[in-house]
Design a protein around this nucleic acid. Structure first.
Lengths: 198, 198
DNA sequence: TTGATTCTTGACTGGTTCGTCCATAACGCT
DNA sequence: AGCGTTATGGACGAACCAGTCAAGAATCAA
């Protein structure tokens, strides 16, 4: 019936994410995104509404992908629960160290810039954090069932502690900490968790 | 000889800090600061040079104050070292929870927005983080000398872990975590540190 | 008092940016 | 092919903002 779109919406979102991620929300111009995608501004506004709505779409997708990635790393059998936790913590440290541009995590960056004045962003960030916490708690509980972590510890409290360490790794990475430092944090954090004596 | 300034430079810096802290760098207009201080734009530019230089002044002073506050909380005798560490960790959790506007820490916020593209901000943030790490390490070493923390642990590695937890508390606070959650993180973090059996 | 010097004020400039509009193009249904 | 519908893209409008500038004000030394 009507003229079809020439562009792939997902590709535009990916490109927009890169721009917002590198420059932040305020410092990224809609025209940057238009040029980077090859679209005209009219198409961009027609498809996404405006800068704020576009950022909301990008931010939402990013949060989803972060939680999904953690979910893939953390879900599984009780027998592997501790190995998964350990791998996840090291993976966050490695990923942060690999981010040589120190862009950090868009979740943290976007929340830092906008959460105070944008309830949508604040809510989405909160939901993502809660999801990550739940994933960690489930995995830690699995560790306990398998006898890897002391059964008398509160899995919820260990989970938020680990989450704080992970967010802290990210923050220190952005501040310029070396890969060695970040790996040390991961190793030390895992080492101080209350283990069960085998 | 010449007409003296009518305003107090320190007061202007304080006001500018509030604006940058609430709105971020890009979203704060020089005219906002001019209105908030009652100064004309000409005076502002005459005294501070420009927006970027003004932010650098504000950011530098903020970093200094953060490190100074930590220094006051963490320096002292070996006998009190563990009490100081504990008090400091709880204080960060309480301060983060008290920040109901979720502005977070200007050090983190400024670094998140600007560090990637502003070497001066990046350097200053790095220096502040390193100073905090050194303060924690000194205090943890004092704890070890006093027999409060296991002597075989590496004080440097425990220090960066604690620092990561503190930065993580700050990040989760901005994401909307409750005071109870933040206090739990503080408590759990202190509980998992390797203590010496008395 | 006079004059040299620095501060103050706010209007102005030049550039930038969000968002709109419209003429045109592309598609599928009939 | 003709038509209705939606996409395109670039020009345009309006607002905004960093930084400048010039005219006047305040101070003190001589």
């Amino acid at each position: 019936m009507a003229r079809p779109r020439k562009f792939d919406e997902q590709q535009v979102l990916d490109t927009a994410r890169e721009r917002f991620w590198s420059g932040g929300y305020a410092a990224t111009r809609m025209e940057d995104i238009a040029e980077a995608t090859g679209l005209g501004k009219g198409s961009l506004y027609g498809a996404f509404g405006g800068k704020q709505e576009l950022f909301h779409r990008v931010f939402d997708a990013y949060c989803t992908s972060v939680v999904d990635a953690a979910s893939r790393q953390l879900r599984g059998t009780d027998a592997d629960a501790y190995a998964r936790l350990s791998a996840h913590v090291y993976a966050v440290a490695a990923a942060t160290a690999a981010d040589t541009a120190h862009r950090g995590c868009l979740l943290a960056k976007g929340a830092a810039e906008l959460a105070e004045h944008d309830e949508t962003v604040a809510k989405r960030a909160r939901a993502a954090i809660e999801a990550l916490q739940a994933l960690l708690e489930d995995d830690i509980a699995a560790c306990q069932r398998n006898g890897d972590i002391a059964a008398d510890a509160d899995p919820g409290k260990l989970a938020v502690l680990v989450l704080a360490v992970l967010r802290g790794i990210e923050a220190l990475g952005k501040a310029g900490a070396s890969e060695e430092t970040l790996t040390d944090i991961a190793r030390t954090a895992l080492a101080v968790l209350p283990r069960t004596a085998h």
